[in-house]
């Protein structure tokens, strides 16, 4: 099964939101998804406790540095996806999860601070690729973006692309429905309407499709 690791040492970059949106959209398309909550803040577990967990999704909580490699391996199967949500710190748990990844997603807000700290994850991936002699595909997804793209956003994106970093298009925009997932649980198809739900669903689906293309080798 492809393992997607959502990693950034920067807190508040949108890792858990990215993990839930990706997991629920893939599950909605009948892909079995296992979400591993490795964050001591238990964001995914809090989401899972708000309502019935959507069909095709399993949430496993309290995964630690000692059992991350074993847990990922235990859920290894074709036709499924494992999504690992990590705490926003530079920890060995992050690096061990990356070592088992088929795709590392680094969410970052389009600010210089987020990009600078998020880049540490990209540097770590490069180091691990060399140490393990294995290519670890990775991509950046901008989160909480606005309809009007700022100069800062454009500048950071151009800079990343020039350095060969894969940037997922579309970004995840700042939407009430995305943050509402943690208030209501479930997915964008079951939660009470918040803001423009059609646009939120289209945004999340288009993002999930781009991730799927990378996993299925269609990108």
């Amino acid at each position: 099964m492809p393992t997607i690791v959502v990693a950034s040492p920067k807190g508040g970059a949108g890792k858990s939101t990215t993990a839930v949106l990706l997991g629920t959209e893939l599950a909605h398309e009948n892909v079995p998804v296992t979400l591993l909550d490795c964050d001591p803040n238990r964001s995914l577990t809090l989401w899972a406790d708000q309502a019935d967990v959507p069909r095709n999704i399993t949430v496993l909580s309290d995964i630690t540095e000692a059992d991350i490699v074993r847990t990922i391996k235990a859920h290894d199967a074709d036709g499924q996806v494992v999504i690992v949500d990590l705490e926003g710190v530079a920890s060995r748990l992050v690096s061990r999860a990356i070592s088992q990844a088929d795709l590392v997603l680094t969410p970052m807000r389009a600010t210089t601070l987020d990009a600078t700290i998020g880049a540490r994850a990209i540097q770590l991936i490069a180091e691990e690729e060399e140490a393990l002699d294995r290519r670890i595909p990775h991509a950046v997804v901008f989160t909480m973006t606005k309809a009007i793209v700022s100069k800062q956003h454009k500048g950071i994106e151009i800079s990343l692309r020039q350095q060969g970093v894969d940037v997922i298009d579309p970004p995840l925009m700042e939407r009430a429905a995305f943050s509402g997932l943690f208030a209501f649980g479930g997915d964008l198809h079951s939660m009470p309407p918040m803001g423009n739900m059609d646009s939120a669903r289209d945004n999340a689906r288009a993002f999930a499709m781009q991730v799927y293309k990378r996993l299925a080798g269609e990108g």
Binding site: V69, R96, S99, L132, A216
Partner: peptide, 26 residues
């Protein structure tokens, strides 16, 4: 359209040696 069958498991090294290399890189 999503085809779950295209999502293939890829073997990865989970040996203690690999974990040690990962920790050193980290």
């Amino acid at each position: 359209s999503i085809t779950p069958g295209k999502l293939r498991a890829k073997p990865k090294d989970t040996s203690p040696k690999t974990v040690a290399k990962t920790d050193a890189a980290a």
